[in-house]
């Protein structure tokens, strides 16, 4: 597989480490109500779509960027790849 790194272009997937669903970015705050339930959902409940999936890849043997890669799990087509940090900021994980 080849991953279109947003800064470095196509890179072999062998340079990356896979983590999983990009929803892991949306970590809840620890001091909320029902924190246990919310964290349980955050950590253990995942969609497993046959089709487009947003997932986290770490360019471990490259620039050490975490990426959010949108990939079709059926065809393996990669629709886009973004810096996870940018995604996190867009999601409001920033002051």
């Amino acid at each position: 597989m080849l991953i279109p790194h947003p800064l470095l272009g196509l890179r072999d997937a062998a340079e990356f480490t896979y983590l999983g669903d990009a929803a892991l970015i949306e970590r809840p705050e620890g001091d909320i109500e029902n924190a246990q339930d919310v964290f349980h959902n955050y950590l253990f409940l995942r969609d497993n779509p046959a089709g487009e999936h947003r997932e986290l890849w770490f360019h471990e043997q490259g620039d050490r960027s975490w990426l959010v890669v949108t990939r079709n799990t059926v065809t393996h087509e990669i629709i886009k790849a973004e810096l996870a940090r940018d995604v996190a900021i867009q999601k409001g994980r920033s002051t």
Partner: peptide, 18 residues
């Protein structure tokens, strides 16, 4: 060593980018 670094980068880039 490798795993901790990876997780720390995850926390830095994805959880606490601020």
């Amino acid at each position: 060593a490798v795993l901790v670094y990876r997780n720390m980068e995850f926390a830095r880039q994805c959880l606490y980018p601020e």
